[in-house]
């Protein structure tokens, strides 16, 4: 029987939520959490011999050493294939799954199957190191993800040929594969053109890469005269979260006055973010939004001034489209207020 090792985070292992996200790498025999459903789908063709677990924050804050430890654990079982996740739209979990996939591909040379929502930052970064099935953005899609991932894992274990991303449902790995087409290129091109003219659907054979990059803005000439604004995706809000910014998948941002705030305390600020342990931010929000030292720097002339408002949202599973929309509005406001430069903090 073929051997599979499964990588999951502390949450899916049932160890705990954000308060346990600093959990160090650990290995358990057999399947754990979602591994049970994978084992059922893999039937008697493959066995999940071990599950490697690591806390999401621990992995991302100690990427090199955590990866080395995780790879050592995986290697000790000499598996035929590794399953990672699925991580859906969980950013740190997706990054960990991707890094494990890269490590396994480069050092063990065995196939990796994972599951990610396409907007997960791990997808863009690590898609070429494994077959990452495209999943929904939350664990509600677990059943579908397990079925699709198991199906592809079995194909790989049997040595069957893997079809195109469209056929199999995985995120394109960015590699090209030669094949013999039924018709010659000129005919295919003209057919496509005619379909386009008729307004009918057609599929390009050569999708253009998307380069979503912005040129760096010019540096600030004299920071001691500059007006600086604070923006954060770490969810800092006035105590009580007056606008009820959601703890994940935020649909709004907040703009709040800093008037009268020289230092954050447990009484005047907290975080709305549900994607990290809030204890430290709730104790002292300066740890996310450094108002105390910014005030000090205005007073001693290190910077010109601090913009009187800060802007905040929760970057936890929040769609790229929403983040873009919030930031476009924030940018407009900043320009109108004569702000010279921005510090954006993320958790």
């Amino acid at each position: 029987m073929k051997k599979v090792v499964h990588y999951i985070n502390q949450f899916y292992a049932g160890i705990g939520g954000e308060d346990k996200a600093d959990h160090r790498p650990e290995m358990r025999e057999g399947h754990v959490g979602p591994g049970m459903a994978f084992q059922q789908a893999l039937k008697d063709e493959a066995s999940i011999v071990a599950t490697v677990i690591c806390g999401d924050s621990y992995f991302n804050e100690n990427m090199d050493s955590a990866l080395e430890e995780v790879l050592g654990m995986i290697k000790s079982h000499n598996p035929d294939l590794v399953i990672v996740g699925p991580a859906f739209n969980a950013g740190r979990y997706g990054m960990a799954c991707g890094a494990v996939a890269k490590g396994v591909t480069e050092t063990l040379g065995i196939p990796v199957v994972g599951g990610l929502y396409p907007e997960n930052p791990g997808a863009d970064m690590y898609k070429r190191y494994g077959y990452f099935l495209e999943t929904s953005n939350s664990a509600a899609g677990m059943r579908k993800a397990v079925a699709a991932m198991s199906n592809l894992a079995l194909k790989l274990l049997r040595g069957e040929e893997i079809g195109s991303p469209q056929e199999e449902g995985y995120i394109p790995k960015g590699i090209r594969k030669n094949y013999f087409a039924k018709e010659r290129g000129s005919k295919r091109a003209v057919d496509m053109l005619i379909a386009k003219i008729k307004g009918e659907p057609f599929t390009t054979e050569y999708p253009m890469p998307v380069f979503d990059r912005v040129d760096p803005a010019p540096a600030v000439k004299d920071i001691t005269k500059a007006k600086i604004a604070l923006v954060s995706s770490g969810g800092p809000v006035p105590k009580g979260n007056p606008d009820r910014i959601e703890s994940s998948s935020a649909t709004k941002y907040g703009k709040y006055s800093l008037e009268g705030i020289n230092d954050f305390t447990p009484e005047n600020g907290e975080t709305a973010h549900g994607g990290y342990d809030p204890v430290y931010a709730n104790e002292d929000l300066d740890r996310v939004l450094p108002v105390d030292v910014m005030r000090e720097m205005v007073a001693n002339g290190e910077i010109g001034s601090l913009h009187e408002y800060f802007y905040t949202t929760v970057g936890n599973g929040t769609s790229v489209a929403n983040a873009k929309k919030f930031a476009a509005e924030i940018a407009k406001d900043l320009v109108a207020a004569g702000v010279d430069a921005v510090i954006l903090t993320s958790t």
């Binding site: 912005v214 760096p216 803005a217 010019p218 540096a219 600030v220 923006v231 983040a323 873009k324 930031a327 476009a328 924030i330 940018a331 407009k332 900043l334 320009v335 702000v339 010279d340 430069a341 921005v342 510090i343 954006l344």
Partner: peptide, 9 residues
């Protein structure tokens, strides 16, 4: 998005 408005960030 903020940098594309011309603000260094």
């Amino acid at each position: 998005e903020i940098e594309s408005a011309g603000l260094p960030i």
